[in-house]
Design a protein around this nucleic acid. Structure first.
Length: 196
DNA sequence: GTACAGATTGAG
DNA sequence: TCAATCTGTACT
């Protein structure tokens, strides 16, 4: 059964949502084409206390304001001047909390032979956004209402034992304490999670 | 107007 | 392990 995920899903605790997001499907509609992928890797950012979060100490900038929206909105932004990061805001409005989608398992295999190629298509936040053709026009898009991108529950149950929690990536600048928080989640044995 | 950071990537 | 890469952001 395919069920569109509604607002309630996103307004729970960020860490809960991050774990529950694993195994859900991200659906993207481009014109008449629909592409989708299973979420296999996420990272939670718990502002305002999380030093790695853009909303640390409730810092508010035009860029990070989508992070404060009520759960279910897309918070997308550019890093290194060239890579997009796809985040989903969580919890209630006013809290800078979000989940970074780090990796997807592509569902469409247009060319069956290119399976291996696809494996490398979405195994990183930057590549994932390139694949989904996401850009600034999706800033603050509402996943609950949008007609071009949304999340689906397809009854793929992920057992707790399949979920691995590890340190987040690339945030050493935030200090040892926060960098060592095990707020990155991925599905065990998935071949599509980002490296290392 | 301009300095600069950056939650990455891919090559070595 | 490390450096290339570049635009939006946030200052002056």
């Amino acid at each position: 059964m395919r069920k569109k995920i509604g607002r309630k899903f996103f307004i729970r605790q960020t860490l809960v949502v991050a774990k529950n997001l694993l195994g859900k499907f991200l659906v993207r509609k481009i014109g008449k084409k629909i592409i989708s992928g299973k979420i296999v890797e996420t990272e939670a950012y718990l502002g305002p206390v999380d030093r790695a979060s853009h909303g640390y100490k409730m810092k508010k900038t035009p860029r990070s304001k989508a992070e404060y929206l009520i759960g279910g909105h897309i918070y997308i932004y550019l890093v290194y001047g060239m890579y997009w990061q796809l985040n989903i805001s969580t919890e209630k409005a006013g809290l800078p909390r979000c989940i970074l989608i780090r990796a997807l398992e592509p569902v469409i295999m247009e060319d069956k032979k290119s399976k291996i190629k696809n494996k490398k298509l979405t195994n990183g936040p930057g590549k994932l956004c390139r694949w989904l053709k996401l850009d600034k026009s999706f800033y603050a898009e509402d996943l609950v209402k949008s007609k071009r991108i949304w999340l689906e529950d397809r009854d793929e149950k992920i057992k707790k034992s399949q979920i691995i929690a590890t340190k987040r990536i690339g945030i050493d600048y935030a200090g040892r304490y926060w960098a060592n928080k095990k707020w990155r989640f991925y599905i065990k044995n998935s071949q599509f999670v980002s490296k290392k």
